[in-house]
Write a protein that binds this DNA or RNA. Structure first.
Lengths: 117, 117
DNA sequence: TTCGTAGTACGATGATTGTCAAATAAGGAC
DNA sequence: GTCCTTATTTGACAATCATCGTACTACGAA
């Protein structure tokens, strides 16, 4: 049975809501790999997904790098659950800070995907 | 009197609407200097502004660089008028491709500015 | 033609970035 | 305990980026 809370060493640092910066969020979203992660997480809602649920065409360490960029930008939340790491979108925080932003980025991404694949 | 159309050598290349990519737009917006330019242009509407209308705290060549990034991303339009260059936001194109995106970025920027200055 | 203004082009530089492979750590199943 | 799975860390690399100063071009005015 996985422990209710991870050991202290495995608690990841997240920026508080007030520390989230627009430029940093935009930078985090301005990468195809990371946009792919965000798109996937958006489709999972509160359930979230592990890192390996999302098929990235890059090495594992590159994947780790992208997840960290998203987490440090305040776009996603990451918590350990056993050996896995559950990723969820920080929708509430982003919507509170930047109303409509995440939604329009996701819609724009979907539209672009629809146009060209 | 400035000519109605610039000499051929001074016509700048802009991406067509269909060539505008979301990641590129987000990357272009993910810089404080460029966000500053976009914010200023948004307040000018169709009138646009010359490069020197906007006070950037960087050297002229750095300014030129940022304008080019925005133009090549499809965020702004640049046309010569005499020695000056008129910059305008490509609102229609961006709204057609990514409805609501530019608006929510501008709103997010304004909100963040209101919170911290 | 001479001058001033608006902006570009050309390096150069230091910082950041995206990528990988190899070694490591933590947790769960046996 | 011994594995297997999951993911991190480290160190390296090439590419991109933001910045600058200097030299340059184009246009308009005097």
């Amino acid at each position: 049975m996985p422990p209710a809370t991870p050991t202290p060493a495995r608690v990841l640092a997240h920026p508080g809501r007030e520390a989230i910066r627009l430029e940093t969020v935009l930078h985090a979203l301005a990468d195809p790999m990371r946009l792919c992660i965000v798109r996937f997480l958006a489709g999972r809602g509160d359930a979230g997904a592990t890192c390996s649920d999302i098929e990235l065409v890059v090495s594992k360490s590159t994947g780790t790098h992208h997840y960290r960029v998203l987490r440090e930008a305040g776009v996603i939340n990451q918590v350990y659950r056993g050996t896995a790491k559950i990723n969820t979108l920080r929708r509430a925080d982003l919507d509170a800070l930047f109303p409509g932003l995440l939604g329009s980025v996701l819609a724009a991404d979907a539209a672009q995907l629809g146009r060209e694949g």
